[in-house]
Structures are given as structure tokens and as C-alpha cells.
Write a protein that binds this DNA or RNA. Structure first.
Lengths: 338, 338
DNA sequence: CTGTTAGCGCATTCAT
DNA sequence: ATGAATGCGCTAACAG
């Protein structure tokens, strides 16, 4: 069981000093070394099957070329494309992603954050809904860059990439308004989550902009972004007696819950009530009826977040907030009011 | 910008030697040190905000507590639950996952594998369809344990966890047979992928076991596990003139393609033709009609794979192959023949 | 029980 | 252009 070959083995084989090998193997410093010698070293390294130990290098250079990625739950269809975007960009730049699921649980977050810091990650990308402010400060206090995904901080102290929720909900509202709806309901997300809250605010703003009243009782709140909560909140809505003709759901999962609530009451979408979601998750085009939704460029969110991080890794520049544009996707779940 | 606090800072603060600090901070070796001293060290570490550098430790101990996870594409709904299972189990054991997407592209695989080895991962979990045999040997030759997910090697030389494809397809075939079908078709997956091939073999075996003939022309092959290929192969099937009454699809995506092909021809599922998928992906229960499928315990695949790896990390035991049981899930896409 | 010493593999001074 | 020496932060073997 042969011990892995080190830079010293290569040095011995090439008949030079380890320091020289280090230089010859470094693209940046190859110039400092005689071309012949360099060639000899390269060849020796090749034939010995030398593999640089980045860990050891990291100890010296204080760079692990590793990025910590915090995700609430990769099982939520929203996150795979984001992670894919992150990973692609990071990989292209020679970085690798350490990925963890936090379930938005502060104690899990803390543990994972600690574990990643201990592994000397060069930066963090967090897609968690609410990284403890305390934890954030802890990170910010250090020199480890951080990029937030799908949320931002009020004080703009850290970089973030988010989709323009307000605009997105505006698209949704304008769409159903254009269809002729006036009694428009909002099944809102959790208000302690920035996306949930911003979408709610966007709904109110869009309604006002359209000259429509936000009817009391036509806004109901989910405690989580789940189908169950969507169904529960939608049931409340339908039992409220205000008779909405369209529902703007805080996201697609919630919209699915609305489908269920309608079905239980024997109502038909879109004949009786139109429903529009948010996120345009995979396969919502195959539901019955196909769900109209607001598409968010998920993969792009990931690539942009990675770019932002890589950049601040290079120049340590200051925090930037990127806002991405959503797009309306009209399918079969929205139609003119009965 | 204060330099991070090291074990030596702690030693100085506690008035002891760095070696002692190292011991006091190690749960396993705390016993070797005076309780009072240990307490003093702990306190000093605490108040200085000491964070051990696992990278440095790894250099010494040759363990990174990091596992490389190779996935074809996290965007494929099959993989998030598996990754989640892996990550949960790994995290509980103090390990963190380095995750990459390979797209089953050998050159990407090689690059990523190299990058992870350079980071001294303690082991690999690969969910890729076909890790180059050469690469495999390269890994196997080293001392880095490897667990394969969703595939195994003919020679059983490396550990793997797979679902019993043969049994799963048997469940599907028996189900439609029980419904009264006899003209049963198989829209098969790529035969160069072990899952695709095993399911095909399983189909043939199950048909024979049921005393049914595998009709020529009622088996069609997809080049990839995608909806497009499913639609294409299913179209071939329908145009073949053999008039199947049931289709056993190699996986859910392929089954979705079959839905499309039927629709194009104005055929109704399940009235004209029954369709059953494989994998039971998220949301297939919400399709129109809800897809009957064979459920594979995806998350469990992940946890078992992680367990296998952790175990071989501990005792270096030999390769084990774990076969997990699938389960039939009957929904609306299967019914008696017309 | 604790201090000493050495060294993991590498990059980087400083000499030469 | 290359060799020598040093140390990143930590653990392990050995003294004492």
C-alpha cells in the first residue's frame, strides 16, 4: 500500500530540490525556472503519478478552493436548479461546493456553518430563508465572503441575488386583471420569510396600481410554503364567503394546495376560479389544469450568486444586490371569470 | 483584521503547552489531562473564540472528514432525495459532502474526481450511470473507499446500493397482467445503462413467468431517460401496429413521454392504453391521469450508501452489495384493457 | 499528567 | 536559476 507520492518524491526523481518542483508545477511561477528543468520535473511528476495535495497547500495559502453552500432542503424542487447553477460556475473556476441541508433549523445551521468554517471554506452561499442574524454577523465579522440567495438584508450589508418578487406578483395580478377579474384573492406565504412577505406587499401594491380593492378576507396566510398549508388557507378563503374569482398563490406548492381545496368543494379551475402560482417548478405544466405561473430564472440565480462570490473572493469588493427579472407563464389554470 | 486564533494562542492564554491544549480539546483524549487544566483550557478556548482548523488536522491525520459525491444531474428529480439521504447520514457522522454534477460526461467525471482527490476526500459515493472503468480502477487502486449508487459492477468488486429493478418491473408487469392485459409493451431505457438493461431483462423474465409472449415490436428502446425519447419510442410502438393495451415504461420520465405520444394520437390513458412508470417521482400523483408507478426508496438509497461508506471507512471491510425493495403504487393510469 | 520534538505536504522567503 | 530554510496549525510519539 504505497504512500501517496509527494512533491519530494518528484524532486528526488527529477534530481532537483522540492522548492523547484513547487515552482515548476505552478503555472504562475513556471517562468522562474529553467525550461529544461521544468520539463524534467513535469515528466517526473507525470510518471510518478504525482497529485498535488491541495489541503496541504491550503494550509500555506489559506485558501481551500472550497465554498460552503447552505440549502434548506434540496428535496424542494426550487433548489436543484439553483445548486446546479452554483456548482457549474464554481467548478469552472476551480472551486468545489460543500453542500448541506439546514431545514431552516437554526441549530442545524449553526452546526453546519461551524463544520464548514472548520474546513476553511473560502466563502458561503446561503439559500436558507433566515440565517440567524447572529450567525450572519459571526460570518461577516470574519473575512469569509457571503452571498445570500432568495433573500436580502434590510441594511444591504451583504451581497444577495433575488428575483424581483414584487414585479413577479405584479405580473400575476396584471394577468388576471387583464382577464377581467376583480375579486382577486392572495394565498400568501409565511410572513416571517422575506419571499412570503415581499410577495404579499407586491400583491397589495399591484392591486392598488390596478385600481382594485384588497378585500378583507381575501388574503389568507400559510404558515409554510407547502401544499397542505395552501389547501388549508385556501379552504379558509373559500369558506370566507367573499367569493373570489381568482387566486394569486404565493408559490406553486401553495397553488397545488389550492387545487386540492377547490376539488374538495367540487369547484373547477379555471371555470369557477382561476389560480396562478409562482416559481414555475418542473412539471407544473403537466398538472390538470396546467398551472399558470411566474417563472423565476432559478439556474441563473445560482450562476449569478456564484459569480458574485467569486468576484468578492478576488477583489474583496463591497456588497452588491442583484435583482433578477421574473416572467409570466400563461397556461390553463387562468381564464376569464365566470 | 485579527488573524484567526490558533491552538497556540489558547495555550498561551491558559498557560500551558500547545500539545496539552490539543489533548484537552479532544474528547477522546481529555482523560489524559488534569480535569482542572482541561477546564482552564476549555475556558480559554471559549473566551478567545478558538475554532479548530480541521484542514491542518487533516494534514496530520490524513482524514478530511469530507466525502465526494458524484451525481449526474441534481436537476433530475431522482437525485435530490438520494443526496438528501446521503447528506443527512454523513452530517450526523461529522462528515460533509462535496457535491458535483457530472452529466455522465467522462471528462467532467475525471476533472471532478481529480479535484476531489486533491482535496483529500475520505471516500466517494457515485450515482453516475457509468463511471469510467478506468477511473474506477484508479480509485480502487488507492485507499479511498467507494460506494456505487443505482448500479453495480459485474465482478462485485466495489460496494453498491441498488434497487431491485428486476423485482420492480415484475411488480409492474404482474399488476397489468392482473388487470387482464396480455398485449403488454415495454418502452425500455438505454441498454448501455445498467438500470435500463436490468429493467428490460426484468420485463422479459416477468412476462415469461406470467406465461405471456414478449411480442416482437412491442419492445422499443429510448436512447436516454427523457420525456422526448419516451415520446419518440412510444410513437414507434403505436405505429408498429401491434396494438398494445398496456405499456410498462422504463421510468417515469419515459412514461410522461408516452402520455404525450398517446395524446398526439387521440388515445386515452387508461381507457385505450394503460401506462405504468418506474421511480414514483414527486408530483406524478398529480398528473392527469395520476401515474401508477413503482416506488423506489430514494432517500433510503442515500442513507444506506452513506452507511456503507462510513462503515468501510471505519473497518475497511470488504465490498457489499445492498439490494433495496421497490413497491407498487397503483394510481389512475392503469385499468383493465378495453 | 504535561512539555518537547517532529513532521504532515507544500509555498515561500532568503541565499547563493 | 536553484537550493536551503522556515512555518502554515495541528497531532502524535516520546520523554520526563
Amino acid at each position: 500500500m504505497s504512500r501517496p507520492v509527494t512533491i519530494r518524491d518528484v524532486a528526488r526523481a527529477a534530481g532537483v530540490h522540492p522548492g523547484t518542483v513547487s515552482r515548476a508545477l505552478d503555472d504562475e511561477k513556471r517562468a522562474l525556472v529553467n525550461a529544461e528543468t521544468a520539463a524534467r520535473v513535469l515528466e517526473a511528476a507525470q510518471s510518478l503519478g504525482y497529485r498535488p495535495n491541495r489541503i496541504a497547500r491550503g494550509l500555506k495559502t489559506n485558501r481551500s478552493y472550497t465554498i460552503g453552500v447552505l440549502i434548506p432542503d434540496i428535496t424542494n424542487p426550487l433548489f436543484p436548479p439553483i445548486l446546479r447553477g452554483i456548482e457549474d460556475r464554481l467548478g469552472a473556476a476551480g472551486y468545489t461546493a460543500l453542500v448541506v441541508n439546514t431545514d431552516n433549523d437554526p441549530s442545524r445551521e449553526r452546526i453546519h456553518l461551524e463544520a464548514m468554517r472548520a474546513r476553511q471554506v473560502d466563502g458561503f452561499i446561503s439559500a436558507t430563508a433566515r440565517l440567524d442574524r447572529e450567525l450572519l454577523d459571526e460570518i461577516g465579522a470574519g473575512t469569509v465572503p457571503l452571498v445570500l440567495v432568495n433573500r436580502s438584508l434590510e441594511d444591504r450589508s451583504v451581497s444577495s441575488v433575488t428575483v424581483n418578487d414584487r414585479q413577479g406578483i405584479g405580473l400575476a395580478v396584471d394577468h388576471v386583471v387583464g382577464l377581467g377579474h376583480t375579486r382577486i384573492a392572495h394565498v400568501a406565504g409565511p410572513q416571517n420569510l422575506s419571499t412570503g412577505h415581499r410577495r404579499y406587499l407586491g400583491f397589495v401594491a399591484a392591486m392598488q396600481a390596478a385600481g382594485l380593492e384588497v378585500i378583507e378576507g381575501l388574503v389568507r396566510y400559510c404558515r409554510y410554503f407547502t401544499e397542505e398549508e395552501g389547501a388549508r388557507a385556501c379552504a379558509e378563503l373559500l369558506d370566507g364567503g367573499e367569493g373570489p374569482t381568482a387566486i394569486v398563490a404565493a408559490n406553486d406548492l401553495v397553488a397545488l394546495g389550492c387545487y386540492d381545496a377547490l376539488e374538495v368543494r367540487g369547484l373547477s379551475c379555471p371555470r369557477d376560479i382561476s389560480i396562478i402560482g409562482f416559481n414555475d417548478m418542473p412539471f407544473v405544466d403537466r398538472l390538470q389544469p396546467p398551472l399558470s405561473s411566474v417563472r423565476v430564472p432559478q439556474r441563473e440565480i445560482g450562476t449569478v450568486a456564484a459569480d458574485l462570490l467569486l468576484q468578492s473572493l478576488e477583489d474583496g469588493g463591497e456588497a452588491r444586490e442583484i435583482l433578477l427579472d421574473p416572467a409570466l407563464v400563461v397556461r390553463g389554470s387562468t381564464a376569464p371569470p365566470p
